[in-house]
């Protein structure tokens, strides 16, 4: 293989992996105060991409206006999901994972309504303002400026999220709730508000991921499920709740997928990733970079 080809695949893999990581980080954000794994999270990415097409391409809005619109709309949907599908289950103190069913139901509703509205055709979404999808070279490395922007945004977003959790009042409160929901309540923190905020933030983050990912992978309604699985793989390998671990694992997954495309076709690549996931989870249940937390049964 030529060095140029290898580097091109790597660039592709890293960018793709960054998008997977964003789906995973969205899952982490919603998971943190609730321990709820939102199965509709992938659909928020899909909606971000599809609404991005609607606002930016179809309705030709200015990029920043359209993006804010998409993020707000999907964020609101996240709150709606939290209210109807998650809150009723969090009230009941039981080991039934009722939210698995309800968030799955929510995602099925979104997919199928989106299918009716947008139909199955792939859609084009413009690249970030000031960037383009034209290939350019620096030495042997081929890339486009949109890819660079996506990478910068992902890394910056993880810094920002970690800053919020560590330094701000609300972030600390969310961390406290994730440690001990009842204990936090006794200290005057209302976990219900934080749950809603986290779901809104997780949904908005994923919608934004959808907008910036769409130029790279074409928006279609089947995007959500695939990204949910990739996002899950990223957090399962990176360690649930660890955003840096998720980012690293997402990029590894993206590179494995991209590099294996030389010899493997799509189906085999999916099988390879599933195999890696099963093996890693068997050997290191807390992920490659996860700490050995207490096991939850």
């Amino acid at each position: 293989m030529l060095l140029e080809d290898f580097l091109a695949l790597m660039v592709n893999g890293v960018t793709l992996g960054a998008v997977y990581a964003m789906a995973g980080i969205g899952l982490n954000i919603a998971y943190k105060p609730t321990n709820v794994f939102n199965l509709a999270q992938g659909e928020f990415v899909m909606l971000g991409a599809m609404l991005g097409w609607l606002f930016l391409t179809d309705m030709s809005m200015a990029w920043i206006v359209g993006t804010i619109g998409v993020v707000l709309a999907v964020g609101a949907l996240g709150v709606l999901e939290e209210r109807v599908a998650v809150a009723p289950h969090l009230k009941v103190q039981s080991h039934h994972h009722g939210w698995l069913i309800s968030t799955l139901a929510f995602s099925i509703i979104i997919i199928n309504i989106a299918d009716q509205v947008f139909r199955a055709d792939p859609r084009f979404v413009p690249s970030l303002p000031g960037t383009s999808l034209d290939t350019m070279f620096v030495g042997p490395v081929a890339f486009n400026t949109h890819q660079v922007a996506v990478l910068v945004i992902v890394v910056a977003s993880v810094f920002a999220i970690e800053y919020v959790y560590r330094r701000t009042r609300i972030g600390k409160a969310i961390s406290a709730v994730s440690e001990d929901r009842d204990g936090a309540r006794l200290n005057g923190i209302n976990p219900l508000h934080l749950t809603m905020i986290s779901f809104a933030a997780g949904a908005a983050y994923c919608a934004f991921a959808g907008i910036i990912a769409a130029p790279l992978m074409l928006a279609s309604t089947s995007l959500g499920l695939a990204l949910l699985v990739k996002g899950f793989m990223a957090i399962a390998l990176g360690g649930v709740g660890s955003n840096w671990g998720t980012l690293l694992a997402g990029i590894i997954i993206g590179c494995v997928e991209s590099l294996s495309s030389i010899t493997l076709s799509t189906g085999y690549r999916q099988l390879l990733l599933l195999g890696i996931l099963l093996v890693v989870l068997l050997i290191r249940p807390n992920g490659l970079f996860g700490k050995a937390a207490g096991r939850s049964v």
Binding site: L100, L104, A226, A236, T266, G267, L274, S296, V297
Partner: peptide, 19 residues
């Protein structure tokens, strides 16, 4: 592991099989 891992693993499997 917690059983939600299994849900996601099964989703991944469901996407792999037809492919």
């Amino acid at each position: 592991l917690s059983s939600w891992y299994f849900v996601l693993i099964t989703i991944a499997f469901t996407l792999v099989v037809p492919a």
